[in-house]
């Protein structure tokens, strides 16, 4: 059970909350906001860098003929991006021109502090430890746990339910059948108030964690 990332005793109003419940730190560095979508109840912590300005330069075919803003980063619901992490869309050079591809991150993904992420896809219920580097075009499937300090090499596909770690990362195990099942059993809202257990588990529903971040 890893602890939540170091939550600094923030002054009031550390987070800007949007209508859909996204919490974005005032101290995060986000560029190209038009190209970023957040699914709702997603937390972007302090010192997170989202490079939304690095979007695809290819013309997007649109039915209405209108100019469509290309998406460069899309993040699902109840996902937590911890302090100091960087999300940068992967880039491929073809014919001397760099082309950026959009990053897609699913629901209930926990990204630990100080990660550098250039993956093309991160599916839902993925737990990424601290100081993880994900090289361009990696694909991470559902229910994957990435151990802290791992380096995921470029183009690597991580099968659902794997535990990976190391530099370069390799599959070191499988998550148990109980991955992401919160401890209280069905509908397991655990203890409320002081002394209660952490109300979220790795790979599980992060709604409680999101709620507790203020």
């Amino acid at each position: 059970m890893s602890r939540p990332t170091a939550r600094k005793a923030a002054p009031k109003g550390e987070y800007i909350e949007t209508d859909s419940g996204n919490k974005v730190s005032r101290r995060s560095a986000i560029t190209g906001t038009a190209n970023i979508t957040l699914g709702g109840r997603t937390v972007i912590m302090a010192d997170v860098v989202l490079r939304g300005d690095l979007h695809s330069t290819r013309p997007v075919p649109s039915s209405s003929g209108k100019e469509v803003t290309p998406t460069s980063i899309s993040i699902g619901r109840c996902t937590v991006i911890s302090t100091g992490s960087v999300i940068k869309p992967p880039c491929r050079t073809s014919k001397g021109m760099p082309h950026y591809y959009p990053v897609k991150i699913g629901d209930n993904v926990f990204v630990g502090p100080n990660c550098a992420i250039s993956a093309i896809t991160i599916a839902s219920h993925v737990h990424i430890g601290a100081n993880v580097t994900i090289h361009p075009f990696a694909i991470i499937k559902e229910n994957v746990k990435i151990l802290p300090n791992s380096v995921i090499p470029a183009n690597m596909v991580i099968a659902p339910g794997s535990v990976v770690g190391g530099q370069p990362a390799r599959v070191v195990g499988e998550v148990g059948e109980g991955w992401g099942v919160s401890g209280g059993g069905a509908g397991g809202g655990l203890g409320v108030g002081g002394g209660g257990e952490e109300k979220w588990v790795e790979g599980g529903d992060l709604r409680e964690l999101v709620r507790s971040i203020k």
């Binding site: 209280g184 059993g185 809202g189 655990l190 203890g191 409320v192 108030g193 002081g194 002394g195 209660g196 257990e197």
Partner: peptide
């Protein structure tokens, strides 16, 4: 302390 289905 205790709650609905937990005790510490």
């Amino acid at each position: 302390d205790r709650g609905r289905n937990w005790t510490s």
